Simulated scan of single mutants.
Amino acid sequence: MNSANSAAVVVGVDGSEPSLRAVRLAAAEATRRRRPLRVVHGFIWPLLHVPVSPAPDAPPGGGLRHQAEELVAAAVREAEATAPGLAVSGEIIDGEAAAVLVGESPAAALIVLGDRGLGGFASLVVGSVAVQVAAYADCPVLVARGAERPDEPVLVGMDGSAAAKLAAEFAAETAVARGVPLVAVHAYRHPASTGPGDMQPLVYDEARLHDTEDEVLAGSLAGLTERHPGLRLIRRAVHGRPGAVLAEASGSAQLVVVGGQGRGEVSGLLLGSVSQSVLHHAQCPVVVVRASR
């Protein structure tokens, strides 16, 4: 995560309604974090060698470049209306949308985008641009989806991994900024392995297992309230599949935060199965936090 005070919140726009929703969410988040907002549009047409200027006999204001300028200007106006006084800038960058946003990520505090854009396939729950940016960005990525519940808590998924601990720090900062509690959820299915080659017991005491997993959760959250004064922290150890547990819990949250890759994930994956499941099934906006490469 870029910690420089000058790092902006970056929002990707394409003129679609989901991207305008992302603009409103990004403007509110930039205001809370006291960051400027940067509106970015990936302009792919020059890469495809398509003429972007109006034809010689076309009326004024034509051409693909002018259309891109208009949609960026509209997004800037939307941000300024959402958060009066916020420093907002807009830019058109030649390139494919996901590549442009990933390119912005090293210098960004946060990237925000809609769950689906123009031209997305109707069968996709979350668009390919959102998935690609969440998988490759070098800063946290906020995907605007689901319902907005400003009075509900922030939710973070915990599994003891380094990525989850980074997610917990981001979630704690966000919960304090929004003035709501942070609910830390640890989903488990079986007793944890104690070492190489050991076997999970076929029969175990569910109550004792819950207490053990709650202790694991408490340990992974150690020091969080001290590092984030004013944080109201709630722990929940829940028996079930992590993706399904978090998706269900997101129905009573305003935001769910997950690490990009959790414990036990295949190391070659850029985005873990749990974070992908939450991206596709959460009932509120989702933040994916990955460790910088």
Rank of each mutant, 00 (worst) to 15 (best):
G272V: 12
L269C: 03
V257Q: 11
L221N: 10
V238R: 03
D214I: 03
R227V: 09
H228E: 08
R227P: 07
L217N: 07
S267M: 03
L271A: 04
A218N: 13
A249C: 05
E215A: 10
E226Q: 11
G240Y: 02
G230D: 06
G219C: 13
R235K: 05
V216S: 13
G260K: 12
E265L: 10
V258Y: 06
E248P: 00
G240T: 02
Q254Y: 03
Q261C: 15
A253V: 03
R241V: 04
L255E: 00
G259W: 01
E226W: 09
G240D: 02
V245N: 11
G268P: 09
G264E: 04
L255T: 03
A253W: 00
S220I: 04
Q261K: 15
E226V: 15
G243N: 14
L221K: 11
L269K: 03
V266P: 07
L255N: 01
G259M: 04
G219V: 12
A244W: 01
L233P: 07
V256W: 00
V245F: 05
G268L: 15
V216G: 11
G262K: 12
R232W: 08
V256L: 00
V238Q: 15
V266T: 10
I234C: 08
R241A: 05
A237Y: 06
G264Q: 02
L270N: 07
R232A: 11
S220E: 06
G230C: 02
L233D: 07
S273I: 05
S250E: 02
A237F: 13
L270M: 12
L233Y: 05
L221Q: 09
V258A: 13
E215L: 14
G262W: 07
E248D: 03
V216K: 14
G264S: 04
R236I: 11
L270G: 11
A244M: 01
G219K: 13
R227D: 13
V256N: 01
G268H: 15
R232Q: 14
A218K: 14
S267D: 01
Q261D: 08
